[in-house]
Design a protein around this nucleic acid. Sequence first.
RNA 1: GCGGGGAUGGCCCAGCCCGGUAAGGCGCUGGAUUGCUAAUCCAGUUCCCGAAAGGGAUCGGGGGUUCAAAUCCCCCUCCCCGCGCCA
Length: 433
Amino acid sequence: MLDIKLVREKPDIIRQDLEKRGATEKMQLLEHVITWDEEWRAELQLVEDIRRKRNELTKEVASLKKAGQDVKAKVDEAARLPLEIEKAEKEVDALKEKITRGLMRLPNILHESVPIGASDADNVEVKRWGEPKVPSFELMPHGEFMEHLGVADFERARKVAGAGFFYLKGPLALMDIAIVQFAFDYLVKKGYTPVLPPYMLRREAYEGVVDLGDFESMMYKIEGEDLYLIATSEHPIGAMYQGEIIDEDLLPMKFAGYSTNFRKEIGAHGVDTKGLFRIHQFNKVEQFVFCRPEDSWQMHEELLSNAEALFQQLNLPYRVVNVCTGDIGTIAAKKYDIEAWFPRTKSYGEVVSCSNCTDYQARRLNIRSGKVGGEKRFLHTLNSTAIATSRALRAIFENYQRADGSLEVPPVLRPYMGDIETIAPKSQAASKK
RNA sequence: GCGGGGAUGGCCCAGCCCGGUAAGGCGCUGGAUUGCUAAUCCAGUUCCCGAAAGGGAUCGGGGGUUCAAAUCCCCCUCCCCGCGCCA
């Protein structure tokens, strides 16, 4: 959420930003918010004048009573005021509500380095790592390959839960956990605090992290309870400090969260329908940072480099893109995506999303930093995928696929998997050193 | 699910029975003073509008009674303790 004071005092900053985004309707919304705010302040003045009159009369009544004098005249005069107050107050509340809703729909102010563009096609590549592999044989789609190896069962998952679910079995189940451990080991060494958060949040907490109006269509809700299954551990970790004031000396607070994530909408179906690219449930290690405003841009780079390090150690080629105005969404001031190389489609696909939300999320969550009793300000929040096992597994099952129909286990994962080097058809035949 | 106890400013806590300016402590910030990492004293320390003077709001949330509600009445939410159920 944007600061109303920014709207009031420096609307041109916001206008320029919306211009960059080419967001015409938002531009109109901004002008409305400005007008509503003026009206609100005028109306507020009115209410407060009446209230003041009432407060004066109330005091007079109190002192007259104390002195044992007649209060009837004053009481009669005061009795008329509540109705007036109520009327004007309704107006004030309605305007305030409109303003708040408007503010929440206005997007964050972009960092100057965000490229201008209409869609993900205009994202700007800023880095490329690794040699994209061009296989000498025809690769199986990862889902099919997993079934071929007998380590995943999508059919039976469909039978019991519907499309978009999976059973991972044998070495693949181990590999999923191995990826998580591998990522945790790396981040913990870097000073990140591991967190296992609640997998469900109450509506009120969820409203703090996302606009449920936009988001609800992809959320799973528990029937008969005020609980939503989380779509990412970013949400419970962000909500963790809702309404609190954090001592600046404790910043930055860096977390490595792990959870299963639940999402209803899984988007377009296509060749890779069978598999782990778009699913209702997946596992992810997430980085989340609360920091001082002056540190957030440096933290943003740190989060990206952590995620990069994981893909480098897995030896999965990737590129980094700076996400453009048309693709960035409303919350982030700047966003990098890491796109891993998928040799079967000979294309890069999104595996990591790394955002600096500046104070936009913190204002909505009402998380401030400072010395208690001293000056307070909204802190900055950042979030980034460290690694999502599902998408990493797809990349692994393409990049490490062998012509003989087996899979080479990435060396960095072997210590977490009983040192197996290969997964061959018929999972029980997985070979050892 | 049943019974009981709670929710007051950054934190702790008084006020509620009996309606009339939310007391006190801790912490923090600024200042004064003193020859010493300290003590003492003073001021400030929720939010909103306002250039300021000043004003307004605020006691978990919502409604009601009243000239006036932290306080009285009704509804709701959450937390804690015990019991029950349970991995």
